[in-house]
């Protein structure tokens, strides 16, 4: 099989990988914010619930979480799993896991804001939502962007964990091809793909960081 053929075969897997990546970010970034709010809430129950949630998500392997989300409905509730559920399971597990990490990044960013910014906003008459969205959040985003970049790059590589429930993303395809063709080429093609993907991610994030460099 020629290299073009291998890349063609991997192409579909690449799309799935990009799809996992995009959907995970789309849902986990806002969900992480909600979890961060819960974690910082003065409500004892909510705060501790979120603390436990984050602790479990960060304290157990993502691969295990994938298996639990995928097989859980059958083992726990006896619901038979359709093959279309596989894709949902991947997204659910990734979103739940990444939201926990993002929540902690948001929390650290919000906690690092000087109290004076809130006080100035209050004295000038800004409402609480105005203060958060117009004064605090833009500054928080600038502060946490390097940590977010780290997490997003990790996500690109973590998408390969979907292999554990046999979801046909790129890594799963590459492994199958390598086995059937008895060739290293699919692995090398996969490595190049992940590398370029992350190269682009890093470049995009750097662009945003530079854009926010107009103030200190």
């Amino acid at each position: 099989m020629s290299i073009e053929m291998i890349i063609m075969q991997l192409g579909e897997g690449m799309l799935s990988t990009i799809w996992i990546f995009a959907l995970t970010l789309l849902f986990s970034l806002p969900l992480g914010m909600l979890i961060a709010f819960g974690r910082m809430s003065s409500n004892f129950l909510l705060c501790n619930l979120m603390r436990i949630y984050i602790s479990i998500m960060r304290g157990t392997p993502l691969m295990l979480q994938l298996l639990v989300v995928y097989f859980g409905p059958y083992y726990i509730f006896g619901i038979s799993i359709s093959s279309s559920y596989r894709a949902y399971a991947v997204i659910i597990a990734f979103v739940l896991n990444y939201a926990a990490y993002f929540a902690e990044i948001y929390r650290s960013g919000i906690a690092s804001m000087p109290q004076g910014q809130y006080e100035a906003a209050k004295v000038l008459g800004y409402s609480r939502p105005q203060t958060f969205f117009k004064i605090i959040l833009p500054q928080v985003i600038k502060r946490i962007l390097p940590s977010i970049t780290n997490e997003v790059i990790t996500l690109v590589k973590d998408t390969s964990l979907a292999f554990s429930i046999a979801y046909a993303e790129m890594f799963t395809q590459a492994k199958a091809l390598a086995a059937s063709q008895k060739s290293m080429v699919p692995f090398i093609a996969a490595a190049v793909f992940y590398y370029i993907f992350n190269f682009v991610v890093a470049a995009v994030m750097e662009f945003f960081e530079k854009k926010m460099n107009y103030y200190q």
């Binding site: 008459g125 105005q130 117009k134």
Partner: peptide, 24 residues
């Protein structure tokens, strides 16, 4: 304030005009 507490992400003009426009 003692340490000014200007909004660092706003220009000088926006620091002054934002509250009268947005709040008032």
């Amino acid at each position: 304030f003692q340490n000014f507490n200007l909004f660092p992400h706003y220009s000088v003009l926006k620091n002054i005009t934002d509250a009268p426009i947005r709040v008032k």
